[in-house]
Nucleic acid binder design. Structure first.
Length: 255
DNA sequence: ATGGTCGGCAACCGA
């Protein structure tokens, strides 16, 4: 079973990239973030033609999540049940016996901004969400744009980013606490070395071969599911296409 | 810790 995640930064602008990538990589499940489209305008038909079903919830301009699946999706839910403020940052469903939790974690803007407090609260709500719904024996995958680099090796120059909302100590601690539900970082199982990034800010050296990146998109698995992991990788190829997202695809294969 | 550029959408906001 192949599971992947991609912050597409507008599914309408990135539809060709997604369709081509799905044709090439044949993921069973692809989770999208920042679809930036209201449900009536979601480009469902071409994705159905490509063999996918979809569960999606979006709003105009901002946020929006979707789960694409080649097989049936069950128990589709949106939003954190304990926090009704934002249904467009979490989509969950079951696919092929695996519980999928696709999240677009609030970025936080600035450590002094109320949105940063919201980001920290969001992680704690998400930990409760996992506590209430799942047991560590379940096959659960939590994936998406988590907007935190977990370790110094997940940032190109950590010494510069102690006060950045995606590397600040409180954000890393909130992420760690949420992970401590029982999640394994599937990518790191196969690639323990530094230098792997999933996000290259449009405003930085995006176009350079040595682009400075962040690893903020993750595929995390419960221990029982992690034992079935066979491979995981970051696909940089979409960045070479004419209109790349600033995020990459991240992929994991499970038995 | 800068600013840089994007996407959406029609002036800037969010990242």
């Amino acid at each position: 079973m192949r599971i992947a995640t991609f912050n597409c930064n507008s599914i309408r602008t990135r539809l060709d990239t997604v369709l081509r990538w799905c044709a090439e990589q044949r993921p069973d499940v692809l989770c999208l973030q920042e679809t930036k489209v209201q449900d009536p305008d979601f480009p469902l038909a071409p994705l159905v033609d490509a063999g996918y079903r979809a569960a999606f919830a979006g709003m105009k301009s901002y946020n929006g999540v979707a789960i694409l699946s080649r097989g049936e999706l069950g128990n589709i839910e949106f939003g954190l049940s304990s926090d009704p403020r934002d249904p467009f940052r979490l989509a969950s469903a079951t696919a092929n016996g695996v519980s999928i939790v696709n999240t677009y974690v609030p970025q936080g803007r600035d450590i002094e901004h109320p949105m940063y407090r919201y980001k920290l609260e969001w992680f704690h709500c998400l930990r409760r969400y996992f506590d209430e719904r799942f047991s560590p024996d379940d096959a659960v995958v939590w994936l998406g744009d988590l907007n935190v680099a977990a370790e110094p090796m997940d940032v190109h120059s950590p010494e510069n980013y102690a006060h950045h909302v995606c590397f600040h100590a409180a954000a890393r601690e909130a992420f760690r606490h949420c992970r401590a539900w029982g999640f394994v970082d599937v990518f790191r199982l196969f690639h323990p070395e530094p230098g792997h990034y999933t996000f290259f800010d449009y405003r930085t050296s995006f176009r350079g071969a040595d682009a400075r990146g962040w690893r903020i998109d993750y595929i995390l698995a419960s221990s029982s599911l992690a034992r079935r992991a066979r491979a995981s990788w970051i696909d940089l190829e979409p960045r070479k296409r004419p209109r790349p997202s600033d995020h990459t695809f991240v992929v994991a294969d499970f038995d």
